[in-house]
Design a protein around this nucleic acid. Structure first.
Lengths: 232, 232
DNA sequence: AAGTATTTGTCCGTATGTATC
DNA sequence: GGATACATACGGACAAATACT
């Protein structure tokens, strides 16, 4: 067996230790953490290192620091930690299939909500996007990023901001991992077929048919999944 | 009008500027960022401040640093940024309703998958959890955290690690925000009713009935939502 | 193959602003 | 107001990793 040869940096080590402390209950939400100087002494590192760790944890809301008072474990520290681990998992290509499956589920839910909640203006916007996309395809200047516009607008129609942001993260990650690959394997015919599904969805949203909208959306994304699997 | 009086720290400002740069396309994935010394000169701050910002961004995978070479924008930098913004949104109590709705959707999906994929051992585990919970309720020693055990095990049955982690984040956040509140308003009768629903779900999972499992799960969570709304 | 410049990793000392009692 | 504890911020220094010649 070959060694992993990861040279962990000191601040990274401190971040992990604090996270673990919270996960296993040793550090409780609301508790004050020792001062920077004291932590530096305990970990036997410089204060700069402690600060780098603390500021990192602060960014994801695991701790919060009050000038002159000290640093405290946030009440909802676990949220940040779990989302942190979710980031790591999403970026690990071993979970690409889970990611795609998540997208199918989430987009289905979002489509369902969109059909219930889209305003008249929302539906107009969807139609405009669809027409523009059609022109781009015909011109041959279609880019992967264009394909996401429709999906993001549907997410907006759902009026659920959490699901919207989560879908955005998933899509960004999938794009980074396989965006070019997927697009390269899409013929113009396939793009036009996807466009027809878009139109079909707009119709169902307009008619307020959540279940139908959801089904078309899921079929729609499953094709991308099939294309992905084919070229592996 | 009164001033907002936000005293932003320097490293925070740098974090935001780099994030914005990536979002608006000025900084492209793969690009190298100027060295720490150079950035310190540009921002007119010390190197330590720059490092605090860079290490924070590294934790959420927006940049990665190689010793002796420099810092680079990650290919999937947007994923980290969007998940970062999701953390902020989840922690903002204005979005509690969106959060609960998300939980209803996600748990429905997870229950659906669980009914398709649970192994025999999974189902045994679920039964054990249910029996233990029943005893706790009868003893009167039921805690909110116990209620989550069943849900987390169902998530495990789904075999989708991404959805599992996301549900965990949502649940953690809801617990932090309203955990005590919800539990305080649950009578023993209500707890027993929930237990019956758990048993019903286990039955549907055993019989491989995804749609039914999903429906019970969603009803199950909607009751918590109603209790939440009642005591506002 | 060896040497030099660049860049990150780490530490130290010091000064200042802020909160608490 | 004064003392204390703490976070914020600065600048200098050297080691370790990397790149280039």
């Amino acid at each position: 067996m070959i060694k992993p040869l990861v040279r962990k940096t000191l601040h990274e080590e401190i971040v992990n230790q604090i996270m673990d402390g919270i996960t296993n209950g040793r550090l409780q939400p609301g508790n004050r953490i020792d001062g920077e100087a004291e932590l530096a002494r305990q970990f036997e590192v410089s204060r700069n290192i402690v600060r780098e760790a603390l500021k990192s944890l602060e960014l994801i809301g695991v701790v919060h620091t009050i000038n002159g008072k000290g640093s405290f474990i946030s009440e909802d520290a676990l949220t940040g930690i779990e989302l942190m681990r979710l980031v790591r998992m999403m970026k690990n290509e071993n979970y690409t299939i889970d990611l795609l499956e998540s997208r199918i589920m989430i987009e289905g839910d979002i489509a369902y909500l969109a059909a219930q909640r889209a305003t008249k203006k929302d539906i107009e916007d969807l139609s405009i996007i669809e027409r523009e996309t059609e022109e781009w395809i015909k011109k041959g200047s279609y880019k992967f990023q264009n394909g996401l516009r429709f999906h993001m607008k549907v997410a907006e129609c759902s009026k659920n901001h959490i699901m919207q942001k989560f879908l955005r993260s998933i899509s960004d990650e999938l794009t980074a991992q396989r965006g070019q690959l997927i697009l390269a394997h899409k013929s113009n015919d396939e793009l036009m077929l996807e466009l027809k599904e878009h139109i079909s969805m707009i119709k169902f949203i307009k008619e307020r048919k959540p279940e139908e909208t959801k089904k078309v959306m899921q079929m729609h994304i499953m094709r991308a999944m099939r294309i992905l699997k084919e070229c592996e």
